[in-house]
């Protein structure tokens, strides 16, 4: 509908409906958590067609992520469900709180990082147990590839993937 379709009466009714909802929501939030901690977080289903249930059921993630169901609609918790992640690079690990990283703000620093994998440069600060001789040379993470045309490489990859999937190359896939 257009703005002009809203009469003053409609507009007042809609504003009151929204405000009434938010008032009720704040009371519900207080009831949910005893008045102190923040209440349940989630989102309504597309179209807002169903009332979301209060409180979500957390499902333990398989690989660090998490899944929460609210009102029968999946609203996955997505990132870093495990504690103390900070991309594995944190200096703030053990800093306390429910999660030593979240909200700490950019807590990952290079200083605490170690060489990846099992190569011999772990803990050496650079690469090479012997100065001038790179123990991890050629072992993957220490070898930096030559710069190339990134989008060109990507195009080849995606063209191959599209072809494998039977989709036409160079055109947007059909809408679902």
């Amino acid at each position: 509908m257009k703005k002009t379709d809203l009469s003053r009466r409609d507009f007042n009714r809609l504003s009151m409906a929204a405000f009434g909802g938010v008032v009720a929501g704040t009371f519900a939030g207080c009831a949910d958590d005893g008045g102190g901690a923040p209440p349940v977080t989630g989102s309504t289903p597309a179209g807002g067609g169903t009332e979301p249930a209060e409180g979500g059921e957390a499902i333990e993630p398989a690989e660090g992520g998490g899944t929460t169901t609210e009102g029968g609609t999946e609203t996955a918790s997505l990132l870093m469900g495990e504690k103390h992640v900070c991309r594995g690079l944190n200096m703030c690990k053990g800093a306390g709180g429910e999660n030593a990283c979240a909200g700490a703000g950019a807590c990952a620093t290079l200083a605490a990082h170690e060489c990846a994998g099992q190569n011999e440069c772990k803990g050496q600060g650079g690469c090479g147990a012997t100065p001038g001789e790179n123990a991890c040379k050629g072992m993957g993470s220490c070898a930096v590839p030559l710069k190339d045309h990134a989008w060109g490489k990507a195009r080849k990859n995606f063209e191959a993937a599209m072809k494998a999937a039977g989709k036409e190359v160079g055109e947007a896939p059909a809408a679902a």
Partner: peptide
């Protein structure tokens, strides 16, 4: 729309948004 507004704001407020 009015019903949805009420529901949405209820949910957003209770969720602490």
């Amino acid at each position: 729309f009015a019903a949805n507004l009420s529901r949405w704001f209820h949910h957003w407020a209770s969720a602490g948004w």
